[in-house]
């Protein structure tokens, strides 16, 4: 069971190849995205952490080695700080910590504005989360259910599953999200984004793919038995391929509706 699943997904990842359309780069709007912003700030934060970590870590290690007891009866010789020293040892570290905090807060704030300001000209997809499924509704009414895991190999040479969230490259995508039962969360791991989905409240998230690729969207707020089965792929494809896919889905939906109606009439 395990190895089967393993191979299946690995093959899917490998099989994902995409031809980039010439001249596509020109279509991609040059706006800051949450994904790149996150990666940049993360690297800056990491540097900050390593500097502080190495500083304190090496100092601590040095003390631990240097001040080993020379003889069992020896006592430490730390002096009592006088008032001015004590105050300095309070205020200077406080100032340094606060400076670091505010530097990080400023970076975080800028990124936050990118993350929460939806750019103009975005495409809105409605997400309805339920136990244990995401339903995506595209602007033209096409509905995708994340638990459909059948693959469709005949579409522009790429394996696309029925439950895949297919998006065009270079278009800001807004997810308008609501839950029909318990709290879920929409976690776009490779896009570095998350937002909870709650019953009775609407939440938003926006992201944009710059290149065709495949990533995962997972439910990241605990929602019961099959919490870890609530996921699907996000497949970013070129605009042309996206249009092909959407047209096909629309056609399928129309066909399904007609068959359904025909069945009812027959009865």
């Amino acid at each position: 069971m395990k190895h089967k699943a393993h191979r299946f997904f690995a093959s899917m990842l490998v099989a994902a190849f995409f031809a980039s359309t010439p001249g596509m780069a020109a279509e991609i709007p040059n706006i800051p995205t949450p994904t790149e912003g996150w990666n940049t700030v993360w690297h800056e934060v990491l540097i900050d952490l390593w500097v502080i970590g190495i500083l304190f870590g090496s100092l601590g290690a040095y003390f631990l080695v240097k001040y080993r007891a020379k003889d069992p009866d020896a006592v430490g010789s730390g002096k009592k700080l006088d008032f001015r020293q004590a105050l300095a040892w309070c205020l200077i570290p406080c100032a340094l910590f606060l400076a670091d905090d505010f530097m990080l807060a400023a970076k975080g704030w800028t990124l936050w504005n990118t993350q929460r300001t939806i750019p103009a000209g975005s495409m809105e997809i409605k997400v309805t989360a339920s136990q244990w499924n995401f339903t995506y509704e595209y602007p033209n009414g096409v509905e995708i259910s994340s638990t459909d895991r059948d693959t469709d190999k005949n579409l522009f040479g790429t394996e696309i599953m029925d439950g895949d969230l297919v998006i065009p490259v270079g278009k800001p995508i807004v997810m308008r999200m609501i839950s029909s039962d318990v709290i879920h969360s929409f976690g776009l791991t490779d896009y570095r984004l998350k937002e909870d989905i709650m019953p009775g409240r609407v939440t938003y998230i926006w992201f944009m793919a710059r290149k065709p690729n495949i990533s995962q969207v997972v439910c990241v707020e605990f929602c019961g038995t099959n919490h870890s089965g609530m996921y699907n792929r996000v497949v970013a494809v070129s605009k042309a391929n996206y249009d092909t896919w959407l047209a096909k889905k629309k056609q399928e939906a129309t066909l399904r509706r007609r068959t359904y109606a025909a069945n009812i009439i027959k009865r």
Binding site: W42, V45, A105, G108, L111, G187, L193, K194, V220, E221
Partner: peptide, 14 residues
């Protein structure tokens, strides 16, 4: 520290 930063936590959370 990154978890204190709202904009970092939107990815690291959960």
């Amino acid at each position: 520290i990154p978890l204190a930063m709202t904009s970092m936590t939107v990815h690291l959370s959960e």
